[in-house]
Design a protein around this nucleic acid. Structure first.
Lengths: 304, 304
DNA sequence: GCTGATAATTTAGAAAAACTAATCTATAGA
DNA sequence: TCTATAGATTAGTTTTTCTAAATTATCAGC
């Protein structure tokens, strides 16, 4: 059985008053009224059964007993303060762990991360490309980039960019035997599919795009299915067919001529990439800095 | 500006849980429900913005960060505990300071104190014979013996013995030229007066005693006035006259034949000797022990 | 010797923190 | 499969802590 301490807040108030030599000064330090400090000290004195301060009308001084207690309290408080301070300081030294959907990591984040490193050399980012859903309470992950429709209750979430999809293919394919002038021409192409997850109909797919393009006599389900965008994109780059993927993700591939967009029709989606983290984490300097950079970097990318 | 600590109680709960490796065990140690500990730790994690425990369904373990914080908290808590424990322990080593009305100290307490010392050799009593009213908050006095009518609001008070007064004089006086067979004989004696304090009529005096004795033609105001009982008693012992003093106080002088009680009439008084101390102090072991001894010793004395 | 300023205290009541009871969840072990 | 268990959650209560305002007894400057 541990020794039962008096109320901790009373001890803290006493320590402050003892150190400052004045209740008012202690009150200011603790950001409370002098009355509060006076109450706390009275509580403590009642607890012990003897007074810790000798009072004059306008001043106080420690009694012999009060003076005995003081150094123990000051030392203990310092230890607690140091621990908490270290915890906050360490947080800034520790790598910022970002869990990201692999395709976002591979197609965008990895490429831009050096900018962030240049801007904030003191923050080391550890990128954890993983499909599994993050449990912030248990995995030691600071923030994640998630793909979905939102909202994310109990989490801080910023929508980054939405998943408007368009058909893309290798330039070689365009120059090949099959012409791609009109969406109907897709009937003679291999369609590359991505199956993100189970709930069909919520994510844009070939059937939806073809319908939006007014093409009706094409079997939208034919062609290989990939379990991730990046695989479908790779297949498209290699001339394996036409993939229906996020414009945003393949922007670099388009810019560099590895992919082309044979049609202008973009299918809007209610899916977005989100920056998410525990609500409290967004107050942490490095998490906040990363979020701000990420949002700005994506915005500048989108305005190109 | 000091570093702002998280709520101290949350830190304590976390320390206990970290040390015990379990919320339930910590709850038991802190004498609260596991829910309370869970809440406190959640508060702390929200405060820092990251988790300190990794949770499985039926167990917890410290995260890397939690482990950083732990030793600082344990050390600090130990320091506080040691300080408070020392304060309580020291209290027992420190002399028990009793402030007493000088006459009570001189005529009763000094004589009996050795009994107390024998019974409780570990408690050193310091007897402070002083008329001045004690201010427990400022004078470092543990308890006092006060004379008065009570009640004593805001103080712990035990009535010890009341101030029933009777005339006493030296045996030599009885054998002298003036016979003292009847109260009326006092007309030819020197009356020794004690003037305790200002409020006349509240304490028994010669006028009251003589009236109670049915004697009317004596000037009750003649004779010397002393400002303390002990002086009047000394005067009576030395044959200086007849003093009207507390039977209790002069019991030893009567027993030893230094004084005699010429008449049986005792004037009851609403004045008592009281044991008083701050309400909280009565819980302190040594104060409590002293009070118990004092009450018992006086009771046994009165039953002689 | 006044007078205003000051440090602490007291009281009553408001605000915030801490706690509990009851319920829920996901498992480990029988 | 069933039960017991550790922890989480929710809602509401209790306790603690705090403040505002009034009070007290100086001290310092005039």
């Amino acid at each position: 059985m541990r020794f039962r301490l008096p109320p901790l807040n009373a001890l803290r108030a006493f320590e402050a008053a003892g150190r400052c030599g004045s209740m008012s000064a202690a009150a200011e330090e603790l950001a409370v009224t002098p009355a509060a400090v006076s109450h706390q000290i009275k509580t403590l004195e009642d607890y012990f059964g003897f007074s810790l301060f000798a009072r004059s009308v306008r001043s106080i001084r420690l009694t012999e007993r009060g003076a005995v207690l003081m150094p123990y309290l000051s030392d203990g408080l310092e230890s607690w303060t140091e621990g908490c301070r270290k915890l906050v300081a360490d947080d800034n030294d520790r790598p910022l762990v970002i869990s990201s959907a692999p395709v976002f990591a591979g197609k965008w984040l990895v490429r831009r991360l050096s900018e962030f490193n240049d801007l904030h050399p003191q923050i080391t980012v550890r990128l954890d490309g993983s499909l599994s859903v993050v449990d912030f309470a248990n995995d030691e992950v600071d923030a994640a980039i998630r793909f979905g429709t939102g909202p994310y209750p109990d989490l801080h979430a910023d929508a980054l960019v939405n998943e408007d999809v368009a058909p893309v293919c290798s330039p070689a394919l365009l120059e090949g035997p099959v012409e791609l002038r009109h969406p109907a021409d897709l009937a003679r192409c291999t369609l590359l599919h991505v199956d993100w997850y189970a709930a069909a109909g919520t994510q844009p797919d070939w059937a939806m795009w073809l319908k939006a393009a007014g093409v009706e006599n094409i079997d939208a389900s034919r062609g290989p299915v990939f379990t991730s965008d990046s695989l479908a994109v790779e297949a498209a780059i290699n001339g394996g067919g036409v993939a229906l993927v996020s414009e945003f993700l393949v922007r670099q591939d388009l810019d560099r001529g590895r992919l082309v967009k044979p049609f202008d029709l973009v299918l809007p989606s209610n899916h977005w990439y989100w920056f998410v983290c525990p609500k409290e984490s967004i107050e942490r300097p490095k998490v906040n800095v990363f979020r701000d950079w990420l949002v700005a970097a994506i915005a500048s990318d989108s305005n190109l």
